[in-house]
């Protein structure tokens, strides 16, 4: 399965580094990544492949979201299908 990781918060150094190293640590493969900064707000979206995840989905999600908390940004990990359902006919 693929998941969409979104990172939203005030821009600061090291956000991409922290999020991507957390993904690598758990065996999530980043297949696409995009980021923008809009009026001081940072928004990064990563599509990650979880086929070789070294933990269950929930552990990966909780760790990544907690890493966001430590950085002061909001990280969410959601199955890609919720976005596919909402935005594609």
């Amino acid at each position: 399965m693929k998941a969409v990781v979104t990172v939203i918060g005030r821009d600061k150094k090291g956000i991409i580094a922290a999020a991507s190293s957390e993904c690598a640590k758990w065996g999530a493969n980043i297949v696409d990544i995009s980021q923008t900064v809009m009026s001081e707000y940072f928004a990064m979206i990563m599509l990650v492949e979880l086929g070789e995840l070294e933990s269950d989905f929930r552990t990966f999600k909780e760790n990544l979201e907690n890493a966001g908390g430590a950085l002061g940004v909001d990280i969410r990990v959601m199955h890609e299908d919720i976005f596919n359902s909402m935005h594609r006919i």
Partner: peptide, 15 residues
């Protein structure tokens, strides 16, 4: 990949 605006719209709706 999915459109960034769409993804952020979903996140905003939930958040």
């Amino acid at each position: 990949m999915l459109n960034t605006t769409d993804i952020l719209e979903t996140i905003r709706m939930i958040r």
